[in-house]
Design a protein around this nucleic acid. Structure first.
Lengths: 222, 222
DNA sequence: TCCGTCATGTAATCATCGATTACATTTCGA
DNA sequence: TCGAAATGTAATCGATGATTACATGACGGA
């Protein structure tokens, strides 16, 4: 009996097929989803994410995940996609809650929400930030969610400029500086720098606000 | 014949003993040093650093490195130590070259040298920054080199404050903001964010200068 | 309704890696 | 000089990512 399968196309799309919740569509259900969730949880627990452990938690054989992801990086890319989605949702929720219409106040709220999420979800933030998993597949959703956050800050600063709130006309420079400041602060925390810089645990969130305020004061007119 | 070695103290200090260069002190020479160099080179090549590959390059058995490092993280900590030493040397050389005595100009030179080294030595910078290997052993030299760089920036800002150059009296806040800005910028480059932020490869170094200038303008008086 | 195809999962297997243990060899100082 | 300590080797373990051959169950067209 000749082999019935060609070894090439081992990955397939998740078979776009909606059905009533509760009905198990196949052997395991939506294993792809379960694996991503398991990996997310592993990361959140501080453990290193391994394909096998994710398979173990899904009660599935060690080879099964490779039916859904060509390799570990692809799984991590899917994890990054989900984490990025949650991150974006959180940021937008925080901005929605911030009732102010002042673009610089909104920028402040953005930065604080950014740092806060990074503090509360360090492993997920690391997966998003590293860019190692951005490369793989370059998932459309991942790119879109990220681009949306970029555009968000661009809009806030452009609005501030339009209202004559900024000292400098170089928007791009301000954009990158603000981003570097916020990202750098979140990263300093993630990478454990603060103890060495004399910033104590309970002080970090207040410091984030102070640092962002300092930046805004620096770019604001008058 | 009973075992002559107890399994506990398998690691020993490198036997402080100076001797004429060229003379091989032992079997392999200074294997510890060779392993660190191999690991540094592996990282610089973009490969992931494995103990076995380092041993391979040192033409030594796979178990040999564990005579000098209790585990992989200890090797990486030694690598971090060496990288941090080079980093500090580079920064101090750049500051020595910057003849200016204006503390804010020196801060600028510091930031630019920082970003430039991070750009030219991405893997080594990552090893230094991550803090994963800071934990292990907490090598005195690693901590000292790092603390020295912290103190360096502290001094520059304190001097600027003493000369009445700063708008705000909150030195710590300025310190952390400046550090977050510079670190964040270097990290954005390392983590591949810039393409997504519309900053092109050849533009990065100029952008670093611009961003630092923007920051300094923001904190400087008048 | 039936049946074959294909998506999905399993079992077995590989190579690599970090790590440990028992043993061999060289250095060095009492 | 001689024995203990330092250093390296060989063999081995368990975990991991990945691949291959095979099993099975779901689903749609006849």
């Amino acid at each position: 009996m000749p082999a019935r399968q060609s070894p090439k196309p081992r990955i397939s799309k998740p078979r776009t097929r909606r059905q009533a919740p509760g009905a198990r569509p196949y052997h395991h259900g939506d294993l792809r989803r379960v694996l991503i969730d398991a990996a997310l949880q592993l990361a959140a627990e501080g453990a290193e994410v391994s394909v096998r452990e994710a398979a173990r938690r899904a009660a599935v054989s060690p080879g099964a995940p490779f039916r859904h992801f060509p390799n570990r990086d692809a799984l991590m890319a899917a994890v990054a996609e989900e984490a990025q989605r949650r991150f974006r949702a959180e940021i937008e929720a925080a901005l929605a809650e911030a009732s102010s219409t002042d673009p610089l106040a909104r920028f402040r709220a953005f930065g604080i929400a950014y740092v806060r999420w990074a503090m509360h979800n360090p492993a997920h933030f690391e997966i998003i930030s590293t860019g190692r998993y951005f490369a793989y597949g370059s998932s459309a959703e991942l790119l879109r969610d990220n681009a949306e956050l970029v555009a968000l800050t661009e809009r806030m600063l452009a609005e501030a400029a339009a209202q004559g709130l900024l000292r400098s006309p170089d928007l791009k420079r301000i954009l990158i500086a603000g981003r570097a400041l916020i990202y750098g602060f979140a990263r300093m925390n993630l990478d454990g720098h603060f103890p060495r810089w004399g910033v104590e645990e309970g002080e970090i969130e207040r410091m984030a606000e102070g640092v962002i305020d300092l930046f805004i004061a620096g770019i604001a007119k008058s």
